[in-house]
Write a protein that binds this DNA or RNA. Structure first.
Lengths: 167, 167
DNA sequence: CGGTTTGTTCAAAAAAGTTTGAACAAACCG
DNA sequence: CGGTTTGTTCAAACTTTTTTGAACAAACCG
């Protein structure tokens, strides 16, 4: 039976809502779905670890979303399972060190794309070799060279980024 | 009348298709639409500037997409209007300095989000002041402090990023 | 065992984002 | 002027991504 006045214990209070909104926006910039921002946001502002059911209840999202969102956050290293004595249910708490978050994001989202980009560009270079028209081939060589430089720069920047953000 | 054998002059050759694919993937990582990758990719690999109609014809996209895509790319500083003598139609060429591209992306996509994030966090800090429960308020203070540190780190990293990529 | 709790999976529904194309505006030109 | 070319706008169509929830699996427990 639905509650008529929604004065429910489980609903987010205004401050929680604000925090969740911050993270929803944040993950959106990173290209991650809203539910991931909601989950991380609520964990971030909770004083004690939360279970999947807590998230479902308080964020009003489906079990499916909560389960998938937690999986993604775990793989990013953004949440971990909390040690809770003698409980069957698992509870989650957020990783709050920027270093860790950035590291996970780079590992999971950035590196794979960089790698596949490099592969594609190698194949490109091969295709360009086969062009007959010399002028065209030289032009392509220059442009592909530039792409390779971009890739090298990007690769170089990541560890530096991590270093700066690890403070 | 549709062409039956598609041996059309205007279709992309295999190399062009490969390049376009690289950029489609690239912009996707940045959260930009496919058409923007297609347009930039084709400009990147063209030896001479292209007009809006060229893009429509060769990429087989609508005028609407081409127009909007070019606008976005211009605002990112990723394409510029080429000087072509005595032509009414405007022709576009790509900016190919990584520095410029990164700068535009940071200016248009990153900074605005950082700014709005900072604003939201300030409001958050105010809301947290009004919490009655002292323990809760102190906890919130710590977490909000951390958010502010994250924001400062991000702000600091941008110029460094630009500097490294500007080579 | 059989029942309960906890969590996962995945097809379908919903939401969000992108593209299209027709209508419009603006610049040019004979 | 009136016609043509060039480019923009934006509602509707389409595509892609996300979310839902019912079915399932796995662990526990009396």
């Amino acid at each position: 039976m639905p509650h008529l006045l929604d004065g429910d214990q489980h609903e987010l209070d205004p401050l929680e809502r604000q925090v969740v909104a911050v993270f929803v926006d944040g993950v959106r910039v990173l290209g991650l779905p809203r539910s991931i921002g909601e989950i991380y946001g609520l964990l971030f502002i909770s004083q004690s670890p939360l279970s999947l059911d807590d998230l479902v209840l308080r964020l009003q999202i489906s079990k499916g979303s909560a389960s998938q969102g937690l999986r993604a956050l775990k793989s990013l290293g953004a949440v971990r399972e909390a040690e809770v004595g003698a409980e069957r249910r698992t509870y989650y708490e957020p990783a709050i060190e920027l270093k860790r978050l950035v590291g996970g994001f780079i590992r999971e989202q950035v590196r794979p794309h960089l790698e596949s980009g490099k592969t594609k560009i190698s194949r490109l270079a091969e295709t360009a070799q086969e062009i007959d028209d010399q002028e065209r081939r030289e032009f392509l060589g220059e442009r592909i060279e530039r792409l390779e430089t971009w890739m090298r720069s990007s690769g170089k920047v990541l560890p530096i980024l991590q270093k700066i953000l690890g403070q």
